[in-house]
Amino acid sequence: MNRKRLKQDMIGIAYSLPSLILIICFMVIPIIMTFDMSLHNRTLKKDVFIGFDNYTRLFTKDITYQKALTNTFLYVLVLVPSIVFISMYLSSVIVRKSQKAGAFYRGLFYIPTIASGVTVSIIWSWVFNPVTGIANYIISVFGGKGLEWFSGRSTAFMCVCIVSFFCSIGQPVVLYTAALNGIDRGYYEAAEIDGAGPFKQFIHITVPGLRPTTLYITIITAVNAFQIFIPIQLLTSGGPVNSTISMMFMLYKTAFTDFKFGYAAAMGVILLILISIFSVVQFILQRKE
């Protein structure tokens, strides 16, 4: 019995070995090195051990970082529910279409992921350009006055969320459309006979049936939202007046413009811890099923 167990163990390890070696070399070791770096004051020339000073400074003295922290939480709070629920709804509409139409719509939603965040962000910056942008042009056609978009404190945050939303909606839609096809038609038919309308069917059949997918998508979307960076880097540079700044953006600036590597490493570790906590919570919620 033990021998069989041992053999199982060895085969299991053998199958996992290539992956483990690669992950340990190129993921785990860098993470440990990053953590080590976060305990030092490391710049271009210096490398001094300072313990947890970087962390205390981030939470007590760095006002910009605290703003980035709250902004990031806001991004997560806005983006995750909206992406999850809207993609769920859109997918439920898509599955009622024919096979070809469904595939067509799925492609349209997935295009921003294929075209890469950089191109898409450039185009969005043109759309929202106050002088030559299409958004203001359309508003003027209807007789309104153009908005500030990226140059206004409140509107800039909204714009970044909009851009990020439309860039991220593709994958969840594709996942949900597939998952919806897996829910037994029989449930719907039974509900119809019982007199439940489409809305009730949605709440009592569709949503529960999609729970596992929803959790998977929630985690991935949250991870991306916590790490939101490219739209901010290309569109607003954190402005105006730091209203759209995020933790990743601050990390990049601290590391590669200010050359404060240790400080930036601390930011990275905090981000890792926050995302992990969020994900653990999600997994626990899933276990409850």
Partner: peptide, 29 residues
Amino acid sequence: KIRFRGASILFGVIVVTMMLPKYSMLIPL
């Protein structure tokens, strides 16, 4: 499928590595 000891721990480690932003790991890498 292969029930081997330490599988869940390994899996946990693997999943956590997904969560550190790559920018943080640039210099060590």
